[in-house]
Design a protein around this nucleic acid. Structure first.
Length: 593
RNA sequence: GGGGGCGUGGUGGAGCUGGUUACCACGCCGGCCUGUCAAGCCGGAGGUCGCGGGUUCGAGCCCCGUCGCUCCCGCCA
């Protein structure tokens, strides 16, 4: 290899290199054989260079060029020269020049490809995953993986400059009761005992605060044994951050400045800070989601006042049951077919809505008139209805009457479906917002008890502390999410550092002290030794890069992702192991079917 | 756990109301070609239509089951 080592890359040469003798290394990207003269494009990470083998090239070079096939790995030695004036390619970075080959060295052959690299039609994901190394050769993947690197580099740069220390925490820990199912690792030396993979470095970063590292971060792998989605893998990467002696404002400022730094350097995009803030209630009421897509202007409105006075029993009953009636105006929706409305109703139903009431707003002699659907129940109050929801003639009003949560989320889903179908979502923009004031507890109907809505170490807001036990459902926590373009990008909280308060929270969620000490006594014990007030946050790196790359699946920004079944198609994991390995661990596979 | 979509030569797609030899593009193989750059032209190979049943004179198409991928609900603090 020594004598064929590259002296330049395929993307860097230009007119100023005219006459320069260079060696290039790369892959045969495309070939164009004209019988006499022969062209091929050589590709590496940095670009594409046209190689030309002239008809009068010496010693079998033409034959050699003709034998090159796609994705052969080669070294080419030759002289850079200007292309004839009319033959320059303006679309191409290196389109003014070409390399006149003098020697071609075959470094490695390639089998016929299972799919074309850089084809107009993409191969199916399944195939791309199986041959990930080929998929990764595409400029599109190279760009995204490079963007991911740039992002984590700028994060490290920013946090380091601001006094944060990157500290690693173990990836084999004890199983602790967090939200998700743990991945377990059997211990050979301690048969019958297990390590767990961390769902996040949560407990360790809090202990680092007790350890006096007041500004910590880590780009950490997290593992959760739950069903995957496009924006969710069983294994993902978090930008884990924790700080001592701070309020949530300090966390917000840090993350805003960090993201502004990242976007500026990685994308050349200026982010407007501070980010917008929404309470959880506002987000749900207005957008029907706790991770609102703010690039869409449509807003949900409250229809309770009108529903209560109407003659429509379905609405009156929902209100009487303590539920809600919400409405969404779809501009121009009066033209929707019944089929389309049924589709929207199906969307609402997936979120538990029993139906989707609708009526059209049509132009009338004296202002708007209501038409179709449930309009007959509201025809006396047309003006009030139209004013309440802000509709104009040509619009469609859709409504859901149900529990507050279902009414909001069902219409939130309809809102997104309409926005996507009508192409109302602007590309290339990033709408960030903090969602704050989440409830600390959530009623678990199955078990008839209170659960921690976020996690059990999150601080209740001070004004609720006094009445924590008497009305848990009303307690708001010092919890916050960062959302962007409809994705939850980060989640965090100010933590409880007062053992007494922690005991009260445990008791509300029915976690007795003995159990608490058994599961994570080490944290509670640490809190006996002067724990600093602290809080933090954990942006998801995969989702961040996905949003930056304008992708909709994090698989696109992970070099070696798993599919929705948690299978890595390239190395075919998970896989069976040797009986000997099982025996050493004292494990036996039983028939569980 | 539940629901929707998809599965057709190596790849991406088409295939009408069930009808005779399953179509197109790219790739692959052979030939021609001295300026292309998604090169072009001529020729060729390549398919148990995911799998298993069923309905039918006849199934890529309809029905049932099953497997895989994917999107969504649940789940994921």
């Amino acid at each position: 290899m020594e004598q064929y080592k590259r002296s330049a890359t395929c993307g860097e040469l230009g007119a100023h290199d005219d006459g320069r003798k260079v060696t290039l290394n790369g892959w045969v990207h495309r070939t164009r054989d004209h019988g006499g003269v022969h062209f091929f494009d050589l590709r590496d990470r940095y670009g594409i260079m046209q190689i030309v083998v002239d008809a009068d090239a010496p010693g079998g070079l033409a034959d050699q060029a003709a034998s090159l096939k796609l994705e052969y790995c080669v070294a080419v030695i030759g002289t850079v020269r200007m292309r004839p004036e009319a033959m320059r390619n303006r679309e191409m970075q290196t389109g003014e020049i070409e390399l006149a080959a003098e020697q071609i060295v075959l470094l490695a052959k390639s089998d016929t490809l299972p799919f074309m690299i850089e084809d107009r039609s993409d191969a199916k994901d399944e195939l791309r995953m199986k041959y990930r190394y080929l998929d990764l050769r595409s400029f599109s993947m190279q760009r995204k993986i490079a963007l991911r690197h740039e992002t984590s580099f700028r994060i490290r740069e920013f946090l380091t400059r601001h006094g944060f220390l990157e500290i690693e925490t173990p990836t084999m820990i004890r199983s602790t009761p967090e939200g998700a199912r743990d991945f377990l690792i059997p211990s050979r030396l301690h048969r019958g005992k297990f390590y767990a993979m961390p769902q996040s470095p949560q407990l360790f970063k809090q202990i680092l605060m007790v350890g006096g590292f007041d500004k910590y971060f880590q780009i950490a792998h997290c593992f959760r044994d739950e069903d995957a989605r496009g924006d969710r893998q069983i294994e993902h990467t978090q930008i884990d951050i924790e700080m001592s002696f701070v309020s949530k404002e300090d966390v917000f400022e840090t993350v805003e400045a960090m993201l502004a730094h990242v976007f500026s350097h990685a994308l050349g995009v200026h982010l407007q800070t501070p980010f917008k803030r929404l309470t959880y209630e506002e987000a749900m009421n207005t957008y029907g989601s706790d991770k609102p897509e703010l690039r869409v202007g449509l807003e949900i409105t409250d229809f309770a006042a009108i529903a209560r006075e109407s003659s429509f029993q379905v609405f009156r009953a929902a209100i009487a049951d303590g539920g809600a009636v919400k409405a969404l105006v779809i501009p121009g929706g009066a033209e929707y077919s019944r089929k389309r409305i049924t589709e929207l109703e199906d969307v609402a139903k997936t979120y538990g809505a029993k139906g989707l009431a609708w009526m059209r707003v049509a132009p009338g002699e004296s202002g708007a008139v209501l038409d179709g659907g449930v309009s007959k129940f509201f025809s006396d109050d047309t003006a009030a209805v139209v004013r309440a929801v802000g509709a104009t003639p040509g619009d469609l009003i859709v409504m859901v009457a149900d529990s507050w949560r279902i009414a909001c989320t069902a219409l939130g889903a309809v809102r997104l479906d309409v926005a996507r179908r009508e192409a109302m979502i602007a590309r290339g923009t990033f709408e960030f917002a903090w969602v704050i004031d989440f409830p600390l507890f959530e009623w678990n109907d199955d078990e008839q008890k209170w659960d921690a809505a976020h996690h059990m170490f999150s601080m209740p807001q001070e004004r609720f502390v006094e009445n924590l036990e008497s009305d848990p459902g009303a307690v708001k926590g010092d919890l916050y999410d960062l959302v962007c373009n409809g994705f939850e990008l980060a989640s965090g909280s100010i933590r409880i550092h007062d053992p007494e308060l922690q005991r009260r929270v445990f008791s509300i969620i029915g976690f007795d002290e003995q159990e608490a000490h058994r599961r994570f006594g080490f944290l509670l014990e640490a809190f006996q030794y002067g724990p600093p007030p602290h809080g933090g946050i954990a942006p998801g790196l995969d989702r961040l890069v996905m949003i930056m790359a304008e992708e909709t699946s994090i698989r696109e920004v992970i070099a070696f992702p798993k599919n929705t079944q948690g299978v890595s198609l390239m190395d075919d994991s998970p896989a069976e192991v040797d009986p000997g390995q099982l025996a050493e661990l004292g494990l036996k596979i039983i028939d569980w079917t």
